[in-house]
């Protein structure tokens, strides 16, 4: 008998290729998990609808689950049955983002702290950055540029 927690354990090994530090469970992309003797059915929701990594994530999740549970049918859907918001990122996910140099999302665009030195004296340089989900800032305290997750 496969339990939901077994499925989550496998999904914790799946990462967004653009944010390697955080797995998709901590990122809040897993909307629904159903497991039985015959079927494992997972529903994922995209962080940003236009994110180009989403179908890669879906495929990787599917192949990891198929490898982990070879005797059941595995299906991974990607849909908008749930609306992803930045508060879906777990505490562990926020910490992992910070460790990899990305400021976790705040309440709004002004609510941001430098992931390197912790200073809140940061200027937004660009609302957009290397991926859909991030903005670009400059830390006036330690003089590092850094990216921050856009609040949604």
């Amino acid at each position: 008998m496969i339990g939901e927690e077994d499925v989550y354990r496998v999904l914790e090994q799946v990462h967004d290729p653009e944010i390697r530090a955080v797995n998709i469970v901590d990122l809040g992309m897993v909307w629904d998990v159903k497991a039985s003797d015959h079927v494992v059915h997972v529903t994922l929701i995209p962080t940003f609808v236009g994110c180009s990594a989403q179908t890669i994530i879906q495929r990787v999740a599917e192949s990891r689950l198929a490898a982990a549970f070879p005797d059941v049918r595995v299906a991974v859907d990607l849909n908008l049955s749930g609306s992803w918001h930045t508060d879906r990122i777990s505490e562990r996910g926020r910490e992992a983002l910070k460790q990899s140099g990305i400021a976790p999302p705040g309440k709004d665009l002004g609510d941001v702290a430098c992931p390197f030195c912790g200073s809140r004296d940061a200027a937004m340089e660009n609302l957009f950055a290397s991926t859909s989900c991030r903005s670009l800032y400059y830390c006036r305290a330690c003089h590092n540029p850094f990216e921050a997750f856009k609040p949604l």
Partner: peptide, 8 residues
Amino acid sequence: SIAQEEIG
């Protein structure tokens, strides 16, 4: 980014 999101 905006282009990518529109097409997405």
